[in-house]
Nucleic acid binder design. Structure first.
Lengths: 191, 191
DNA sequence: TGCTACATGTAAAATGTTACATGATTCG
DNA sequence: CGAATCATGTAACATTTTACATGTAGCA
């Protein structure tokens, strides 16, 4: 469902083969919608059955032939219908938060180390988004399609920043809890 | 996989039936990991096959009998092993961003209205998280399990705030682009 | 010679969602 | 009397992930 709209949206930017789409996913779409190649090829076949895309075979020499897909007018209509349809809230799954939800099972120092690990992983993500953002910012001024792509990157950037903030808050709270526990323990020792 | 850890984590807080777990999901876990009842019952059966949980039947009068599940020592070990395992970055899917990625296909005013719609939906989410956060903040000071739960809510809160920021940025950029386009159009008219 | 990029697919397994199915009790 | 809560499951479907499968060209 959603995947088909990711593919259709990419095809509004120009015709592409399954492989091209795969590379586009890796380069931009994967930031907010991941798909591997089996899914992309399968979805392209499904889209073609529904006449939302069509393809022609391009014969290349020295390289394998490729199927170049194009969005059909019906495909454009379908994409626009979805785009205009009212948006309802989604649920986002987060493994990091799922880990946080069990953090009380670890000794304080280990819990804090784990949060630092999460932060480190997230920082890489943040740097990546910052780099893409810088590259795209000037391009976004020119074309609508580029602006759309830029907005998507901005989204990832905002989320990566929020993740860093959360990691910092979590660390602070865990430190505070550890200090309280330490206080209790030393008072008990003195008795 | 991940779902099993959500269930095991809840069971470290006390024994529970599938129905209890379902309610816990709706009340807290669903904020970062959604599961409907068919998934929960299926996963409980799978966990029991792997001897990570066990159950006893509690006969109730006036109400249906229930199966109360308890985490086994093996279950605790499994949860801790996962918790301690190195964390690799996940990919987050976002329908909102997927819509943003196609926003150039809409006329400027409609694109802006769509972003406002996204913001409105997100604001509800934000308010919800704010309310839970306020409720949980004092409780988080007492127990480790509560602190873990609080951290998870903080995560949702940070993300909801980031979403609002993104909506605001997106709206500003779309307005700027519309103004530029309008400028070009009026210059063309004067010629 | 081995790795990467190009290029396309299928098969199987795991996960997740929606619909179907049942039945008692309590509250308005 | 109808709706919500308690309580458990199955079946069918859709989606996603991982592994299998193949083959050329260019580079180090």
């Amino acid at each position: 469902m959603a995947l088909s709209y990711a593919i259709l949206s990419l095809l509004t930017r120009g015709d592409a083969s399954g492989y091209d789409l795969l590379k586009s996913f890796e380069g931009s779409v994967a930031n907010f919608w991941y798909a591997g190649h089996p899914q992309i090829y399968k979805e392209l076949a499904a889209l073609e059955r529904r006449a939302l895309v069509s393809h022609r075979v391009v014969v290349q020499d020295g390289r394998p032939n490729k199927k170049v897909f194009r969005i059909t007018p019906a495909g454009r209509e379908d994409l626009l219908r979805w785009l205009r349809s009212p948006h309802r809230n989604e649920r986002h799954n987060s493994l990091a938060t799922l880990k946080a939800f069990s953090l009380h099972l670890l000794p304080a120092d280990e819990a804090i180390a784990k949060v630092e690990e999460l932060a480190t992983e997230g920082r890489k993500e943040l740097e990546r988004y910052r780099a893409i953002e810088k590259m795209l910012a000037p391009l976004a001024e020119n074309s609508g399609a580029m602006l759309s792509a830029y907005l998507s990157v901005l989204f990832g950037l905002n989320y990566a920043e929020a993740y860093q903030r959360w990691c910092a808050q979590a660390k602070a709270l865990l430190l505070k809890a550890a200090a309280r526990a330490e206080g209790r323990a030393s008072r008990a020792r003195r008795r």
